[in-house]
Design a protein around this nucleic acid. Structure first.
Lengths: 355, 355
DNA sequence: GAGTTTTTGATGTACGTAAATCAAAAAATT
DNA sequence: AATTTTTTGATTTACGTACATCAAAAACTC
């Protein structure tokens, strides 16, 4: 049987109260006594039963998630996952609320952060816009003792406790590597469709992509970035124009949202043998994968990100160290052959735990 | 605040004892009263505090993992993950023990299963060998009330409560699809290196691979399977012979273990432009990926599998339904550009939770 | 060595649930 | 209506920890 505080007390020859004082860093214990207790903890291999401890403490963690509004499917999926996490949050003593703010709007984001921080929650997770005002707002929150993590999209260093999201440079490199292998020696330029070069993750993906493409043996032209503002209409238009201008186009890397427009443009008229790599598995990219219009989709699991953010924020709130390796978010690669089954029914009916 | 049993009792106008009887399916409650209580549970949205419940119950789950011995790196990694899970098992009230048995030995496995079942643990997880005797042993364990899940390698239907592992047909298809795209129109046959066609997961991977290759536009010869018995020496020899016999070899799919030998053979003398896809990220496949000797590695995360097995067994032991979608193990695809950082230090020092 | 301060012990309550006991009430059976 | 059976209530203890209080003991001052 696993040792309890009683065992520690008995083994150390002290009272329960003293063990408690040592365990919870309460004052009024002599150094020698503390050492005795710590030795007993060590030899018995005692580990605090966190379930019982939380029960006794009645601790709760009010957490605020701030996500961009709009019809970006990934963001809506993220929000759904936050709701899912919120539904089972009683189990992990988290109380999750969601704030949606206009996308790409630093000032609205700043206001949301300030509002959230005013309630002194246990933590804030924010899909960041990479602007100095936002970094300042995050710093303000942190100076009032509220831990802040950035989610999915980071901002320029500091100003946050942790970043929960994929390594976007690595994602871009992966896309470039796949594109290079898919194309082999087939000639022709490659286009890149992004949302906006003002967004950090998009910049990083592009950087990785061009670097990986450059490493390949075949020299290949990478066309100027098409900025589709994550808007399906604009994306479709830009891609169609690109097809016109470059009938020999060999590949497209779509590193942002707006893939509905991309798919429409491709299915309307794509150069023969065009290889397409996109980001984020949504209903559109999924069906395009199945139809062979897209060759590969790089994906980040929103559910993992949400759960990781919760764990990290709770750890920060408790002043506990985060195991970085454990909180790394994986880059999923989906082909039409390893697609996960489509989520049937309502996300809200699911209780996810792990993995 | 979250409702408790007391709130239910008050709301339903019954006593705490009656609520307890309803919640824990104890007898002695009239249908009408039970309905009243259930209505109160529903309207208040009560969910049992499992932490408190487990604390009160003092329930523990003795679980036995049975894994093959030998120097198969994946299996050793699996065992390491089981140990990791065992270290934090007090937290989830699991008591994990490991049994190692000679690989590919149905009779030894049968004996291990019978031995494990004799102790009446809360569940058994077994890396199965697909043999009738093994299925029979699993059936015996289950008739004595011990849930059994197969891990990594399944056996022919029935005879187990659940299979924890990747969809190996899908893995094979993914490999085939990648291989097809990597090769493009480059001519030449493709070889398959397996451990043994007597093992179910290897058979399934091959099946998926050939199917996916057949779907590709380019007609391509798939050579007879090389059975390397998961043995590096034998694998090296077979692959080298294959290089001799087929100087125009375009690709190799290694769907089992023994990749150390494969890598040796490739680095010694591989046909120019050879594309290689292997399974399971180990130190050997990792460095071969980095060196460009292997193009892609399909991987299953042993940590996920272990944690999933624990969750499933506990659920089965409690007679609770398993959310199948949640327990699906993902197929990871690694290129040299999305390799996770190497695990430094000792696995035992890590406390993994999720994702 | 008397007084002061610090340290330790003893004890109780609480968290939310499980499980048991015994008495009381209600229902079913005669 | 009396009896038996079933259902319900009231109460207690326990799980392992946190936290508070008050008294007792030990360690310091001067």
């Amino acid at each position: 049987m696993r040792p309890t505080v009683h065992d520690i007390a008995a083994s150390a020859g002290v009272s329960l109260a003293t063990v408690d004082r040592v365990l919870n860093h309460r004052p009024g214990v002599r150094g020698v006594t503390r050492a005795k207790v710590e030795a007993a903890i060590e030899t018995l291999g005692y580990v605090r039963d966190v379930a019982a401890a939380n029960l006794a403490k009645g601790r709760v963690y009010p957490l605020v998630f701030i996500v961009p509004a709009g019809d970006n499917p990934f963001m809506r999926g993220l929000e759904a996952e936050i709701l899912v996490a919120g539904r089972r949050s009683p189990a992990d003593r988290a109380q999750i609320s969601i704030l949606t703010v206009p996308a790409f709007d630093p000032l609205a984001l700043v206001e949301a952060i300030d509002t959230a921080a005013a309630d002194q929650p246990a933590g804030i997770a924010v899909v960041a816009v990479d602007a100095p005002e936002v970094a300042a707002a995050i710093d303000r929150a942190r100076t009032t003792g509220v831990p802040v993590v950035t989610l999915v999209s980071d901002l320029a260093a500091s100003g946050r406790d942790h970043f929960v999201g994929i390594d976007n440079v690595a994602a871009g490199r992966t896309a470039g590597s796949l594109m290079g292998r898919f194309l082999g020696s087939r000639p022709g330029p490659v286009a890149v469709l992004a949302g906006s070069m003002l967004v950090r993750d998009h910049r990083e993906r592009l950087e990785g992509f061009t670097a990986a493409m450059a490493e390949h043996s075949e020299v290949r032209v990478i066309l100027d970035v098409l900025e589709g503002q994550d808007d399906p209409m604009l994306a479709e238009e830009l891609v169609a124009m690109c097809f016109n201008a470059h009938p020999d186009l060999a590949g497209i890397y779509s590193l942002g949202a707006g893939n509905r427009g991309l798919v429409t443009a491709i299915s309307a008229r794509a150069p023969k043998g065009l290889r397409v790599i996109a980001h984020d598995l949504t209903s559109h990219t999924r069906s395009a994968l199945k139809a062979g219009l897209i060759d590969a989709v790089l994906h980040q699991d929103a559910g993992h990100e949400v759960r990781s953010a919760i764990r990290v924020l709770k750890a920060k709130a408790d002043g506990v160290a985060v195991i970085e390796a454990q909180e790394r978010i994986r880059i999923d690669i989906f082909l039409k052959d390893n697609l996960p089954p489509e989520q049937r029914g309502d996300l809200r009916d699911q209780v996810e735990q792990d993995d």
